[in-house]
Nucleic acid binder design. Structure first.
Length: 216
DNA sequence: ACATTAATTGTGT
DNA sequence: ACACAATTAATGT
């Protein structure tokens, strides 16, 4: 599928210089993937760097037993810091990337990523900026895992979700939440019921609603 | 509309 | 963490 310069300009018009936009249309590979598509699995090799145009991608790290821990989400105009490092050092992936919505993205071949770093100042800025963003997310994740209690982590996860969809109702199962927090489903069920009693959430099958004063 | 089945959630140990 | 009960949603007839 080919890229249209005009559409790119809409997204990146004031971020990248014209010559770089041109280059992206030349070598970039446009894709649309459905919800639930595995963009990357641990052990896979990275052949290109994704730039997310729209949609949502969950990046998680999984250990040997298949336990997963949420690292961060990739949304509009984000790129993946992991794949940036991996491709520069030609390493295998250590993470899993799965789309949570229908997602539109551009794949940039690895060679270009390096070339552009020296050629285009705005590209370099972009790369550094995504590093910084991801790094902040990761620090947040570490903080959560190391210092917060599980109930705080759960509530926090729910708040993150509400930001992403700009609404207070999500359709998730307890088990999915448990996976993101690397716990068991029962624990989540019990915590959720506590939160319900405290009036923070409303529960029903496949659905959780955040109630009360949760500002974005 | 009803019965059957599958998936999600609740609870005790 | 496991086993099982209870509940709810999805599907077929």
């Amino acid at each position: 599928m080919r890229l249209e310069l005009d559409k790119l300009r809409l997204h990146f018009g004031n971020l990248f210089e014209a010559a770089l936009l041109q280059e992206i249309t030349q070598v970039g590979n446009y894709m649309e993937v459905p919800e639930g598509y595995a963009l990357m699995r641990p052990g896979g090799y990275i052949r290109s760097v994704p730039i997310i145009l729209s949609g949502l991608v969950k990046i998680s790290r999984s250990d040997a037993d298949g336990k997963e821990a949420l690292l961060y989400y990739l949304g509009g105009l984000d790129s993946c810091a992991m794949s940036l490092t991996c491709c520069l050092s030609k390493q295998q992936s250590e993470i899993t990337a799965i789309t949570e919505e229908k997602t539109k993205l551009i794949l940039i071949p690895v060679e270009k990523v390096g070339d552009w770093m020296s050629q285009f100042p705005t590209w370099k800025q972009f790369v550094f900026a995504t590093y910084q963003k991801r790094f902040e997310d990761l620090l947040g994740a570490i903080d959560q895992i190391a210092f917060r209690k599980l109930d705080e982590r759960l509530l926090n996860l729910l708040k993150i979700k509400s930001k992403q969809c700009n609404c207070t109702i999500f359709y998730v199962t307890h088990e999915e939440l448990a996976n993101e927090l690397a716990t068991s489903r029962e624990v989540i069920s019990r915590l959720l019921k506590q939160l319900e009693k405290m009036g923070e959430v409303k529960l029903s099958r496949n659905k959780i609603e955040l109630v009360g004063k949760h500002k974005s």
